[in-house]
Design a protein around this nucleic acid. Structure first.
Length: 267
DNA sequence: GGGCAGATGCGAACTGTTTA
DNA sequence: TAAACAGTTCGCATCTGCCC
């Protein structure tokens, strides 16, 4: 019996899946399976999981052992903390960055983090914010920097820290009448426009719909931009034709508005 | 019957021990 | 001290069996 086997057992029990446990442990599924097998063998081949069902579930003995294992891991963590209390944080830090935030996060803040905590090994990946939240929840990531709108929810158990606010820029065709200098645009002014939005599920889209609903204004959707692979919406097209959907080809004289969004992902 | 999660076979890499 | 060997752990590829 060793600590790694115990960690694997607890990970499988807590995630309910060997695959998810493997992600949390930074191992492959076969390696995780073998750790569980080793652990069961060290317990005298005691059946800790009922494998007759899929996914496997803990047996009553497994539940009993799980409580002991958690106490063991807690004790080990306390022991480690007692010896490293005065030292800088060290080890692997798996961080996720929302699509579109790379330039903002991967330069100065990350350099500062590396300089401040030299013993931390950073592993950075990029994804949609909603997927990042899932990965943090599953343990695949330690933390993530994302774009959250009012339409996003952060699951219980996760800590949310606001780093700042960003503006969603609405781009309209040049033929849209201009406002007098200094007079701000209001959503009411754009209610008659046709909107080009990311597909349903996009956080910015949901927030816009919510804002229109609040004002009891109609939202005319001219077209939704094509999503990338999967259900996650892609960022706004930056091709020369961006903002021009097939329903209203360039130069047709019809006014249109465009809500830009990059990185928030499905809610 | 297909999809998916878990189990297994096999080889590679790493680590610890033994011996010259 | 260095080479040889054994044991351990891992990942890739593939198989098995459950669930929908």
């Amino acid at each position: 019996m060793n600590l790694q086997d115990i960690e694997a057992f607890v990970a499988v029990a807590e995630t309910g899946s060997v695959n998810r446990a493997a992600v949390r442990l930074n191992l492959t599924q076969p390696a995780t399976t073998r750790r569980i097998q080793n652990f069961e063998a060290s317990m005298g081949d005691a059946p800790l999981f009922n494998r007759a069902v899929k996914p496997a579930v803990l047996t009553s003995l497994g539940n009993h052992v799980l409580e002991h294992c958690r106490r063991v891991l807690t004790a080990v963590a306390e022991l480690e903390a007692s010896t490293t209390k005065t030292a800088d944080p060290a080890g692997d830090l798996k961080a996720g960055i929302a699509h579109g935030m790379g330039e903002m996060v991967l330069t100065t803040p990350l350099d500062a983090l590396r300089r401040t905590f030299a013993r931390i090994r950073l592993q950075v990946s990029s994804n949609w914010t909603s997927n990042l939240i899932k990965e943090v929840r599953s343990g695949a990531l330690d933390c993530a920097v994302g774009l959250l709108t009012d339409a996003h929810t952060v699951p219980a158990g996760l800590t949310r820290l606001s780093l700042g606010a960003d503006q969603v820029v609405i781009v309209a065709a040049s033929k849209t009448p201009t406002r007098r200098s200094g007079t701000p645009w209001r959503l009411r002014d754009l209610a008659s426009e046709g909107w080009l939005l990311n597909p349903p599920g996009c956080g910015c889209r949901a927030a816009l719909v919510k804002a229109f609903d609040r004002l009891q204004l109609p939202l005319h959707i001219a077209a939704g931009s094509a999503a990338s692979s999967g259900s996650a919406p892609g960022p706004p097209r930056r091709s020369p034709g961006a903002g021009n959907d097939s329903a209203h080809p360039p130069g047709d004289g019809k006014r249109r508005a465009y809500a830009a969004c990059c990185g928030c992902g499905p809610t």
